[in-house]
Amino acid sequence: MEEKKKNRLKKVAAGLRQDIIRMLCLAGSGHPGGALSMTDIFSYLYFGDVLNIDPNKPDKKDRDRLVLSKGHACPILYAALAEKGYFDKSHLKTLRKFGSILQGHPDMNKTPGVDISTGSLGQGLSCAVGMALGARLNGQSLKVFAVIGDGECDEGQIWEAAMAAAHYNLDNLIAIVDKNGLQIDGFTKDVMDTEPLAEKWKAFGWEVATIDGHDYDQIEDSIQKAKNASGRPAVVVAETVKGKGVSFMEGVCEWHGQAPSEEEKEEALKCIGEFKTD
């Protein structure tokens, strides 16, 4: 990736991280860790000319779709959609509040730019498989992206969907696994070891790339290859750092589902600011 583009995307990512921290602090609850870990990938997807979408036409028929199967990470989705112009940024202040368009988990009937409602882990990839099948039947050349968690891979339904996607040769489906190594009760290897994760996807018939989920060259390379997959679905296993960009949150299990206080917010914004000039 060109340095210029890389720097632009890093700058966007820093802004998205700041939005995540600010909205969670105001909400008083929510999930920073798994939102921050996906920020570089979302910066690339939404601002790196990857997704064929138009914020002025959120229901455009041939748009690419994104399913955030790990729905609790919605602050990154909301931050990206707001930055993209799907709705006014002032809505970010209303996250999780009564009457807000930004629910605790994504709701397709409330938030422009959300392609399908998610929240209960394990269910989103199946919906993405259905969307990919539907698009193929419609003769649409669009791509369906599904973002799932590594903890979410504990769910049997993920593997049912993985089996079905390969069975139907869905090369219009791209899964991204946010392999941040943590879930609510601790390290995924201790709670329920999903390793060898990449090999499992391979065994299910998917084209697999394992990358550093914060390295823009690797992100671009893997997503572009996945878009060109032929005859089978592709998965990018993105090794990430939970809480990425906020030093005191990085790799700390407790920041899975806890909002920063006012002081913590200030400290976090400072961290992100420093990271931005990196």
């Binding site: 397709m108 392609d115 399908i116 269910q123 989103g124 990839l125 199946s126 919906c127 993405a128 498989v129 259905g130 969307m131 990919a132 099948l133 539907g134 698009a135 039947l137 419609n138 049997g156 339904q157 049912e160 969907a161 089996m163 079905a164 139907y168």
Partner: peptide, 26 residues
């Protein structure tokens, strides 16, 4: 035959896929 989707003994998966097909206009 092109409009029949068989998902085997995976009812949870199949229900999600039905939802996905429905958002695709089916």
């Amino acid at each position: 035959p092109q409009r029949h989707f068989e998902f085997g003994i995976q009812e949870q998966n199949a229900m999600g896929e039905a939802a996905g097909l429905a958002v695709s206009g089916k």
